[in-house]
Amino acid sequence: MIKVNYSNKPNTFSGIWIPFGVGLGFLFVVLGIFNLVLDNYILHIITVIGIYIIAATSLNLTNGYTGLFSLGHTGFMLIGAYTSVLLTYKVSLRAAYNLPSLPTLLGGANYQWPFLPALLTGGVIAAIVAMIVGYPVLRLRGHYLAVASLGFMIIVTTMAKGMKSFTRGASGIQVIPHYSNLWNVYIWVAITIFVLWRILQSAPGRAMLAIRESEVSAQSQGINLMKYKLYAFVSGAFFAGIAGGLYAHFTRSIRPYEFSFSMTFFIVIMPIIGGSRNLFGPALGASLLIAMRYLLKPAEEALGVYGLVELIYAALLVSVMLWRPGGILGKESRAK
């Protein structure tokens, strides 16, 4: 069954903004309390969780709701990260780090972009790339799409490694300004979940769900498959770009291979474990997996058993697939 709230008063002011306002208020009260009582290390973990919630939730628009299994999400995160970093990078450090100065069109050599416009630009560029890539790739189904999108991710990471004059190649970019914090990350978490909720309540959202159930029957209802697949893919890519930008300005150093297969796997399994047919499933998966990673990392390092965390993730994934295919928040049904 489809887990979306089909309420009867969808498009009224009170039906949209009151849940959003209440949710946002609640979220920020909780975060405010966290900010007062918890130490910096735990706040750091909570911020990381927020970034992954954005990535996993937006990925779920294609992977969970539209039934397009994409493995290319981190490619868009990489695009968003590098775009925003190249715009916000400090003017005084550009020469030392061999990064090009901005062309006149983007503000000239002595201009450093503020964070928000740079972040949005990163998201928009990722969305544009998604539109260009999606048009050919989304004609494929199932397994073909999975491998083609994985290929897209590999193409993007090798390009980031190869285009040395923009990205410094494999050595990556360091000393990125530290703009992301608990508050702006969670504002974006709220925006992502809200936008996704609105999309799923709207006609395009229903079209996406129909495409997931059966492309043939969706098409016979007059749904333009390519249009709605692109809709899902491009909106997912926009938020992936945002997540990438937030990630870059939080960790303050990025390398092409950070956005490679292990991160892809990490993000792809979050919605599956949390429950890919529930709006909050990916968020739950993200919180669970990252909390687990930070809890187990000390043990992993103390015992010298590197790979333990991923091993547990993989075992968890296979167990969920075998015994609870809908994820933790999913319904018990085994959809065929």
Partner: peptide, 30 residues
């Protein structure tokens, strides 16, 4: 991994095989 999932949604086999790959890779790493 696969026997129980056969006949289910096509992608669940794919996801499981990803899980098995990561499991073996990290078992070797560990």
């Amino acid at each position: 991994g696969y026997r129980k999932l056969r006949g289910g949604p096509g992608l669940s086999l794919l996801i499981t095989s990803l899980g098995i790959y990561i499991f073996i890779e990290n078992a070797i790493k560990l």
